[in-house]
Write a protein that binds this DNA or RNA. Structure first.
Lengths: 331, 331
DNA sequence: TTGAAAGCGCTAACAG
DNA sequence: CTGTTAGCGCTTTCAA
């Protein structure tokens, strides 16, 4: 089943079938109608390989991701995949987790094997030559969740988001605030932890307050738990904790409970993310929308691929207040 | 940069380069050496499209998945992707979550567009004609996490796993056991909930016990929480709960705590999955290894594609005992 | 073991 | 608006 058979059935040339089916070039409505009918009847679908070979377009986008088991990443992936599929694009997934050897493979072999039209890099710090090679090949590249030098990137303003979370606590009247943030090890994340910590500090400073503590941990429930245990177990424990991610914040909530502390009565806790379980935990958080970020990234790429003007990448975030934050208990 | 340039550089024909690089057909060691050197030097990689068009092979496997935000699925995906990448295969991700309209698109357009050599279906009940169309196209198909009629599938023996979990509780001396399982809505899962419930019942029956309760919920933390609250809030609450998934079990643990019950002192809780957070929660569970299941699935496909004998799909599971289960408190 | 040559199925100039 | 035609780059007979 190939284009020729459709052409024969519709009584036109191969080229016309190609035009009618792809939408490139003009075809009279009547002819298009006939072609579509014939193609449908015969159950014809273009051969991806032939089309690619001839046109240079693959209708395939590569998504490179550092892990698969973090909520943020899968959300971005899902959002991007969905948006791309809606436009008839396939998504090839490159999961870099592991020893790092696959990273070179991905770049040297896969991306260069002309398998993709464009690339989305999620929370990944690309090396300069990785970026430039993609550029040379004319492949649009957009980052999500971390800035890549010279590359359009979608990410929330981490500094501002952290400030928002902190100011929320301050506005409630807290004066003893601690922060649970990323440790040095979380470097796949472009200093994101540092920016959030900076936002925290800035908000405190603006209010004339001193930080009541900082503990680095990894971005997991267990990490948040351990850090919070430490913070809340100390003699002069803070009355409020800002955690750099919701998963950490969940851990902090559990730690507080295990210490017999009531949230928010004894300690207020706020996170960043808008994780789907935040509602369950009653967690106040600065929500970001990774799914939309993924979809936006896809749109930017799609626009670049079709030569239209790329949409301006707005990356909204907002405070969602739930039961985990309240005024501090009067001393 | 194409095969011809490499051929020229190595002083051989295109055909020989193709043979040397693909390993199909015989080439003298010396020649192969020269070809590889030339290709490497020139930074040549075969054009996927041209190769596919000419050979009919895509070196691409489609993975179809119902959601992206469930631990089990992403683990399977990661395992399969990794194994396939190691063998030089790409993975195209089809995420079916949504209204179901994309399901037809995926089958009608994407899979038939000759974009994949094989398909892995994760926890997806395929319709008969979907299966047969893949068959007609000669595309190997393997399922993970749910049986598809007429298709090789990797999945744990749900009945046996549930029995194992239940017997663990019984062997500790519990006589009042309840079950939190999937509700009717979880139908993407091939009656898996039903099989697990059956295993639970069978184990009780074999021990001459009556079930102390069953509540259906969805496979989430919140679902498990609500169900456990109900179970544990009742006047004659069970001393042990078997939850169909670890996430549900986490919810049950939190529910117990919120009710002021001690785990395992007042109530023992066991799950199924071997979720990465099970350790944090101290959850006893019947661990399965979805990552390995994904890798196995990939191996089966790879074997079928190369014509070698497919490995026998072993799908192990085992009881991992932690702090959430213990003897019932003497009455 | 190696080379010559015929496609694989589609797209995009170009001509009309 | 439509047809003709020349590739796209590789694989695979078939011969040598």
């Amino acid at each position: 089943m190939n284009i020729a058979e459709v052409a024969r059935a519709a009584g036109v040339s191969n080229a016309t079938v190609s035009r009618a089916l792809s939408g490139r070039g003009s075809v009279s409505p009547a002819t298009r109608e006939r072609v579509l009918a014939a193609a449908d009847e015969l159950g014809y679908v273009v051969s991806q390989a032939a089309s690619t070979l001839s046109s240079g377009r693959t209708r395939n986008v590569g998504i490179v991701i550092p892990f698969l088991d973090r909520w943020f990443f899968t959300q971005v992936l899902a959002g991007a995949q969905r948006r791309l599929m809606d436009s008839g694009y396939d998504v090839t997934l490159y999961n870099l987790e592991g020893d790092g050897s696959e990273r070179r493979t991905v770049f040297d072999d896969f991306l260069l094997r002309q398998r993709v039209d464009a690339v989305i890099a999620v929370s990944l710090e690309l090396e300069e030559n990785e970026v430039s090679r993609l550029h040379e090949l004319g492949k649009p590249l957009v980052g999500v969740g971390g800035p890549i030098p010279g590359v359009r990137t979608l990410q929330i303003d981490d500094d501002a988001a952290a400030r928002l979370a902190t100011e929320h606590l301050i506005s409630l009247g807290h004066t003893s605030l601690a922060h649970i943030g990323g440790d040095e090890a979380s470097d796949a994340d472009f200093h994101m932890p540092i920016k959030r910590r900076r936002g925290f500090s800035a908000a405190l400073e603006a209010a004339g307050l001193e930080p009541a503590g900082f503990i680095g941990a990894d971005f997991t429930l267990a990490g948040g738990y351990r850090a919070a245990k430490q913070l809340l177990g100390s003699p002069n424990r803070p009355t409020a904790i800002f955690a750099s991610s919701d998963e950490m914040a969940f851990g902090a909530i559990l730690a507080a409970r295990d210490l017999g502390l009531l949230v928010p009565h004894d300690v207020s806790i706020v996170g960043i993310d808008g994780h789907e379980q935040a509602e369950f935990f009653g967690l106040s958080t600065v929500a970001q929308y990774p799914r939309r970020q993924g979809a936006h990234a896809a749109e930017v790429l799609l626009a670049e691929l079709t030569g239209s003007e790329a949409p301006s990448p707005e990356v909204p975030f907002e405070l969602v207040t739930r039961a985990s934050t309240a005024r501090p208990r009067p001393a």
